[in-house]
Design a binder for these strands. Structure first.
Lengths: 113, 113
DNA sequence: TTATAATATAATTATATAATTATATATTAA
DNA sequence: TTAATATATAATTATATAATTATATTATAA
């Protein structure tokens, strides 16, 4: 079996990291548009450090990227490479959270956490 | 957010259960053909109770089904329903373990665990 | 019937994980 | 400068998970 498990390990790790409700929500939100940590903290029901730690895992897995702008750090999905077919497929089937972000936009974000 | 999280929870649980190297291997093997517990135990490097426990989780998630034949229990993938798009996509992209099973067939299975 | 084989379940243990609180770092504004 | 904001990291705690060993259950064979 060992000859066959390398790819399986890679996939298993991908699914394990995405297989968490908080990270899956973050991931789905970032599919809509890039968001800063304070927006994610505002949207989800966990603390800011928890968000940062989840983002670190997603970054280690190389599925999100960050962009620094002043004191804010904006995260977004990293475009999957051509050979990352499973990741692509997962992203395609993610639930659409556009409406959840519309609510955020309407009330106007207050980044005071 | 709560209005949007039901589907996310379902997906997160699916990915969490499949996001384990042992279960991902079992799942990939069952994609090739149905296998009894003793064959899976023979192929993988964990104990028979561990295999049974992983199979139970996969069955709880409703992604595998079982068929009893004498003292053997054969497991196979449950055909995903039309609306289970993400599961379908994952199955499609699973690594092909046909060769690993050929080796098993050649040496002739000895179900003495 | 008794023994053996295949599988499942229970109990236990060790490890991993997610969350919180506390604190550090960096950036901007007063 | 000093204060406040945004984010990251560290330490801790509570919980979940995967594995093992031991045992139970069921089916077949001697």
């Amino acid at each position: 079996m060992k000859e066959y498990t390398e790819q399986i390990d890679i996939y298993a790790q991908l699914l394990k990291i995405l297989g968490d409700r908080t990270r899956m929500t973050i991931f789905s939100l970032l599919k809509v548009r890039e968001l800063c940590v304070c927006e994610l903290t505002d949207l989800l029901e966990v603390s800011q450090p928890a968000i940062s730690q989840h983002l670190r895992k997603l970054k280690l897995l190389n599925v999100v990227k960050e962009r620094k702008n002043g004191q804010w750090v904006y995260y977004s999905l990293r475009e999957p490479k051509e050979n990352e077919r499973m990741l692509k497929a997962i992203i395609e089937h993610l639930p659409d959270l556009t409406d959840a972000l519309k609510e955020l936009d309407q009330k106007g974000i207050s980044c005071k956490i």
